[in-house]
């Protein structure tokens, strides 16, 4: 049967899709002194090198702090924009949205070089806060996409009813809108963190020597000599992704429960 063939092909492609992730995870526990797959022995030595080396640790802290700042900036700004695009009365919403999404489309190399070009004379290269602001340019559009779809799921009549009952916009926002979209905000915050945490090209140009993020250090190391520590660092990055996806899945479940509640 053709159906069985399709199943077989899909199973094969699925294995190809997930294999690279598994390969990195397995390799990170290698005990071999150089890159070889499959590894001959098992150990935690590359995790020890990763977390024991002050330079890798400094990159970890740089990545985390830049990611958190990016998440904060882009979630706030992106939420306001998503609210405007869903509830605002403006002409040309779609063209506005296409402008907001431009940073996702324009090659990061161009964005990064242009930002470097204006940042270097101002002495901003190497500033973690500045990298976070720059990352927000590519993270905020993701927040907008996530929160627009969340807000589109909220019945505007709930807000209208509250207004009709005399509530001010601030009250409506705090008591009606916000509680309904908390899970959406959580996933927007998580994915904007991830967008920054995993971003390489902008960080590469703006990090200088002092604030190299984890992806930048992986990049530099891959271009010179491939040290096996990279496997442990990569596995760590995959772990962060898994963590984010799990929390997001939990938040979505929370959302569907919240949606079902009023109909009881």
């Amino acid at each position: 049967m053709a159906d069985r063939w399709i199943r077989f092909v899909v199973a094969l492609i699925s294995v190809i899709l997930i294999a690279p992730v598994l390969v990195v995870l397995i390799l990170s526990f290698s005990g071999d002194p150089y890159l070889r797959f499959p590894p001959n022995s098992v150990s935690l030595r590359w995790y020890e090198t990763f977390l024991g080396n002050p330079e890798w640790r400094r990159s970890l802290i740089a990545s985390l702090s830049i990611g958190l700042m990016t998440s904060l900036i882009s979630t706030v700004i992106g939420f306001l924009a998503a609210y405007a695009l869903v509830r605002g009365r403006m002409a040309g919403k779609r063209i506005m949205l296409s402008f907001v999404l431009l940073p996702l489309i324009v090659p990061h190399v161009i964005t990064a070089i242009a930002l470097y070009f204006v940042s270097a004379p101002l002495g901003l290269v190497g500033s973690r806060f500045w990298i976070a602001v720059s990352h927000s340019v590519v993270a905020a559009p993701i927040v907008v996409l996530i929160l627009m779809s969340t807000l589109q799921g909220v019945d505007p009549n709930l807000e209208r009813a509250a207004f009709g009952l005399g509530a001010s916009r601030v009250i409506v926002f705090r008591r009606i809108v916000l509680p309904l979209i908390v899970p959406g905000i959580l996933s927007a915050a998580l994915f904007s963190f991830l967008a920054s945490f995993d971003e390489l090209i902008i960080a590469l140009f703006l990090s200088g020597v002092s604030s190299e993020t984890l992806p930048v250090r992986i990049w530099n190391s891959l271009r010179m000599d491939v040290e096996p520590t990279i496997a442990a660092v990569s596995a760590f990055l995959i772990g962060v992704t898994v963590f984010v996806l799990l929390i997001d899945a939990a938040a979505r479940r929370m959302l569907s429960v919240g949606r079902a509640a009023p109909t009881r």
């Binding site: 899709l17 997930i18 690279p20 992730v21 390969v23 990195v24 390799l27 890159l35 797959f37 994915f191 991830l194 945490f197 995993d198 390489l200 992806p215 992986i218 990049w219 891959l222 491939v226 990279i230 496997a231 990569s234 990055l237 995959i238 992704t241 898994v242 984010v244 996806l245």
Partner: peptide, 16 residues
């Protein structure tokens, strides 16, 4: 899972 994994990590794994 691969979609949300860093591009540099995904590239590295294919190098392996």
């Amino acid at each position: 899972l691969p979609y949300f994994t860093s591009v540099i990590v995904r590239t590295y794994s294919w190098m392996v």
